[in-house]
Every structure is written in C-alpha cells, then in structure tokens.
C-alpha cells in the first residue's frame, strides 16, 4: 500500500466522510431543484448520485489512486451506514399500506392477477428490447429480474446467467428514473387510475416509487407498497422459469 493510500485511509476512511458528502450533495440537489423550478434533471437524488460519482472520480484522480479503490475505502464506510437505514424505511411502508387496508381487502385479487400478468408481459417486452439492442444472453439475463427489490434481483440474476452488478445498477437506475420522471410519465400515458398507478410505480421504482406514489394519493401509495412486496416474490418464482423457457440457462 502506497503512502497516499495510507493517508487517505487515515483521514477519509472513517464513515463520517461518506455521510457528510451524501448529505451535502443531497442538500445541494434540493437547493438546485428549488431554484431550477423543479426541472426533472435537478431531482436531488439524481443530482446527488451524478455529482457524487463525479466528485469521487475527481478526488481519486487528484490523489492518483484507482476510482473503485477510492470508493470502497473512502466513501463506502459512510455510504453503508446510510444504506442500512433503507431497512427500516422499507418496513415503514407497512403503515400507509395498513391505512388503506380497505382497498387491499376489496381488490386483492385484481392486485395479484395484475402484478403476475403485468410482469409476464413486461418480461417479454424487456427480452425483445434487449435482443433488439444487440445484447448477449448475459446482458438479457441481467435485465430480467430488475422489477424485484435489489436483494432479490441480484441472486436471481446470477442464477439465470446474468451479471448481478448490472442488475443492481438496473434496480438503482429504476428508482432514480422513476423519481425523476414519474410525474411526466403519468401525464404522458394518462395513468390516472390510482390502483394501477400505484402498482406501476411500486413495480418500476421500488421503494422510491412508493414514496413518489404516496405523494400522489394515499391509495396510490398503499398500492405501490404492496407492489414492492408481491412483485419481488413473483419475480422470485417467475423469472427463473421464464429464463429457462427462453433458453437463457444452458
């Protein structure tokens, strides 16, 4: 290990660097979003992510160390602490879901059927689009499980011959994209019916999609929360079979 690397670990290796950087970038994103009058590319999460990657890349270049090494040793300790809080944050969606139990009790059959059928249709479209883009079997397999939450999608991706890191990237970008584009997409495709809107947002945008749906209406938020759970389990069951059927697993 070089002297620079030792210095970096001494001064930036504690979690507080990653925590401070994340908070600063997110607050900067919020400020930018406010003065940019809500321009979609200025969404705080998107700004925080892009600037964060840029800052880490810049610092790694300035210190003359490998970017991945710098990320793992300087940012990750703090990033992991923030990341851990996604556990209680995901559990928290039980509350908006419970508050709209009336919808769950009335529409549980429609919710279940729609998520299963919707996922099946989506898998065919995603398969076709990936094929058209000229991706190999490994790339296609990495795209298929992305509707599930990251912790489910990654092992499935590996099991059906994909690259778990690419699938994780897909899950993250799903969330970022939905957070940035949901309002516009809902208008574009006229997704005004709250149950479908919520299930769609939860499937495509995971927990972030649920937070977005909750801003639209309590009904939509509850549906998104239920979608996150059910779609993950449906992906668990359906995607390996689909991949097998499509000949992705040798």
């Amino acid at each position: 290990m070089s002297a620079t690397q030792t210095t970096i670990i001494t001064y930036l290796g504690t979690p507080i660097f990653g925590i401070c950087l994340s908070i600063l970038l997110f607050l900067f994103g919020q400020w930018l979003f406010k003065i940019g009058k809500g321009f979609f590319l200025f969404q705080p999460l998107f700004v925080g992510m892009v600037l964060g990657i840029f800052v880490l890349w810049l610092m790694a270049k300035a210190f003359g160390v490998d970017v991945t090494w710098f990320y793992t040793n300087a940012y990750k300790p703090g990033g992991d602490i923030i990341f851990w809080f996604l556990n209680p944050a995901t559990i928290a969606f039980a509350v908006p879901l419970y508050k709209r139990n009336d919808i769950v009790k009335r529409f549980w059959l429609e919710i279940l059927i729609s998520l299963i059928v919707g996922l099946f249709i989506s898998l065919f479209v995603i398969y076709g689009v990936s094929k058209l883009l000229g991706m190999d079997n490994n790339g296609i397999a990495s795209m298929l499980p992305q509707a599930a939450t990251t912790a489910i999608a990654m092992p499935i991706s590996g099991a059906i011959g994909g690259t778990p890191a690419i699938t994780a990237m897909a899950c993250i970008l799903n969330a970022v994209l939905i957070y940035a584009l949901a309002t516009w997409l809902i208008k574009l495709f006229h997704l005004t019916e709250p149950i479908g809107q919520g299930l769609g947002l939860g499937t495509a945008g995971h927990t972030v999609g649920s937070a977005k749906a909750l801003q639209l209406s309590s009904a939509s938020g509850a549906m998104a929360a239920i979608a996150v759970v059910i779609i993950s389990i449906v992906v668990d069951l359906v995607v390996p079979t689909f991949a097998n059927f499509m000949g992705l697993i040798k």
């Binding site: 994340s22 940012y75 990341f83 944050a89 990251t150 994780a168």
Partner: peptide
C-alpha cells in the same frame, strides 16, 4: 423514514462508481 427515502438512496446511486468499468 418514508420522507427520507430519496436521500437514503444516494449511496446506492453513488455505488455505481464501483461499476464504472
């Protein structure tokens, strides 16, 4: 916790630094 979701996702986004190659 729900109001914090977008912020909590920032490290996941920055995690892509490790997949730059």
């Amino acid at each position: 916790m729900i109001s914090l979701i977008a912020f909590l996702f920032v490290p996941s986004g920055i995690q892509l630094t490790a997949s730059l190659n």
